[in-house]
Nucleic acid binder design. Structure first.
Length: 508
RNA sequence: GGCGGGGUAGCCAAGUGGUAAGGCACGGCUCUGCAAAAGCUGCAUUCGUCGGUUCGAUUCCGACCUCCGCCUCCA
């Protein structure tokens, strides 16, 4: 089955065919964070989507190289650095650390490369020199360098590939009075900005004098350095289409480094923004959420991730706390099913957060079981259709109901359970949601005629003791006592479930 | 003003020229000492409005209403 995706370049859905002649290697670049503040939930929608794309490509058998930049020099950062009176790196590294912490909470795989803009100044300068040499960039009197849209278009290049632009409204020769720089045309954009006093210590030497890079050049320089002048996928939020991505194309293709007939990027994917409670996020509306805000409300990264992955990436998504509550319930349903099947298949407790995105097989009874190909196939054809996660979840929930039915009627063998666990974990792994069951299940008492055994998964002593006491009370038909213990456990944050095989303790 | 994306049950959200997936919430039932979990079951004669094409449209076309995004700060 072939993956089809919406390529902004073509404004249509296209079959994904990697540039690699072997059809195996895939280069993927995602515009990363600008580290001047904590990232918000909207930013993470984009990064979680990128992570999904990567995981799905790996699932499809591709060898993916994922690059995500960190923008650590830029106007807003410089302004904040001045306020904070801190060295640039000290300032940006604190937000960068928080960003990666959040990314991990959301169970996003670390990109293979995380280039920092400030580490690639030399590459940017080299690229700018190439652009000047080819006549599509020019230096101004103050020592800045601009990209000339007019010259670029003059060489037969197309500016306006991702968005339709109306050049009649971008009159050449006009000046924006607020712009302190002297560029030839309004549409031109800065490749290199000459140093100004407000920049403080933030500047680098260059052939045109001290200064700092423009906003777009870093992505061109770093992506081409790490993935080559032509690569497969470039993703980012929809707002980056113009001007950021458009300018990236201009700079990268304007340098003439691609081989004939090749583009800078073959497929551009843009994720839609999200609204919070139906409105654009803003601090004054009180609907501005960082990940830590949501964690403080008692939600987990897993739940947030799941919610972000329930809607199609090209649709505006309305993020609400009510939705998050619903996400919790839905996810719980899936994990409950997985958990019961694991129990039946007698798997060892799940190991903590595993970062490898590929899952080859699940071990049970010393053998690797085969997944349910029908289910996986349904999931795959949904995802192949431009990452139609809603349809994919539909197949998952239908399958879960079917498995629950088998589970309760006793129609599922241990071996089938093992295969089903394998199947569900493969799918959950693509969503980056494979790892969370250990958060819910913690202890299980098996109550045979002869003995009581405990399958402990790190449950604290008091909860376990109460579970035993309740089990004893139930055997003695002292239900009043048993119910009192259940309430007590609830106060401690545990819910107890009586199953045909014994009691089970779960985190609330 | 230009360009683009939407409006599907209480909420979220797929989808198709042939009569509306899935999840959450809610109600009933089964199971249970009681619960929980799970299962079964009920829950949009209808897909923003009005026209048109068609044997048939939520799906195609047109107009309108409305929400949102981008138009050089922005995931």
């Amino acid at each position: 089955m072939a993956l089809k995706l919406f390529n902004t370049l073509a404004r249509s859905v296209q079959e994904f065919v990697p540039l690699d002649s072997a059809g195996k290697k895939v280069g993927m670049y995602c515009c990363g964070p600008t580290v001047y503040d904590l990232a918000h939930i909207g930013n993470f929608r984009t990064f979680v989507f990128a992570d999904l794309v990567r995981r799905y490509l790996v699932f499809k058998g591709y060898d993916v190289r994922h690059v995500m930049n960190v923008t650590d020099v830029e106007d807003k950062i410089i302004a904040r650095v001045r306020e904070a009176k801190m060295p640039l790196r000290d300032f940006t590294s604190q937000y960068e650390a928080e960003f990666f912490k959040d990314l991990q909470t959301l169970n996003c795989l670390l990109p293979h490369d995380v280039p920092h803009a400030t580490d690639y100044i030399a590459e940017m300068i080299a690229l700018i020199e190439k652009l000047i040499a080819r006549g599509v960039a020019y230096k101004t009197a103050d020592g800045s360098v601009y990209f000339s849209i007019e010259k670029y278009r003059g060489c037969g290049c197309h500016y306006g590939q991702l968005v339709k632009l109306n050049f009649d409204e971008m009159r050449v020769g006009e000046r924006v009075s607020s712009d302190e720089y002297a560029k030839e045309s309004l549409a031109d954009f800065a490749l290199w900005k000459a140093r100004v006093p407000e920049d403080g210590d933030v500047f680098w030497p260059s052939p045109w004098g001290a200064g700092r890079p423009g906003w777009h050049i870093e992505c061109s320089a770093m992506s081409m350095k790490l993935l080559g002048p032509s690569f497969d996928l470039h993703l980012g939020g929809e707002d980056l289409m113009f001007p950021h991505h458009e300018d990236e194309i201009a700079q990268s293709e304007g340098a003439g480094v691609q081989t004939a007939g090749q583009r800078f990027v073959k497929y551009w994917l843009h994720g839609a923004h999200l609204l919070v409670e139906g409105k654009k996020m803003s601090k004054s509306l009180g609907n501005f959420f960082t990940l830590r805000d949501l964690l403080a409300k008692g939600f987990t990264g897993t739940e947030v991730r799941y919610l972000l992955l329930t809607a199609h990436y090209r649709e505006t998504f309305n993020f609400t706390l009510e939705g998050l509550q619903g996400a919790r319930a839905g996810l719980k349903r899936i994990y409950q099913c997985l958990d019961s099947m694991r129990q039946l298949a007698q798997f060892a407790p799940m190991q903590k957060l595993e970062l490898a995105p590929d899952i080859v097989g699940v071990q049970a009874f010393g053998v690797t079981t085969e997944p349910d190909r029908t289910f996986i196939g349904r999931f795959e054809s949904a995802m192949d259709n431009d990452f139609n996660v809603s349809a994919a979840w539909g197949t998952v929930f239908e399958w879960v109901r079917e498995k629950n039915r088998d589970l309760s009627s006793g129609a599922m063998s241990e071996k089938e359970a093992s295969s089903n666990v394998h199947s569900l974990e493969m799918v959950l792994n693509v969503f980056g949601l494979r790892t969370a069951t250990f958060e819910t299940t913690s202890a299980f008492i098996k109550t045979d005629e002869a003995s009581i055994t405990l399958d402990d998964q790190g449950t604290p002593e008091p909860a376990m003791r109460l579970m035993f006491e309740r089990e004893a009370a139930r055997k003695a038909k002292d239900f009043k006592r048993a119910d009192a213990i259940r309430d007590e456990l609830k106060r401690l944050g545990w819910v107890i479930e009586d199953t045909p095989n014994g009691a089970r303790l779960k985190r609330l």
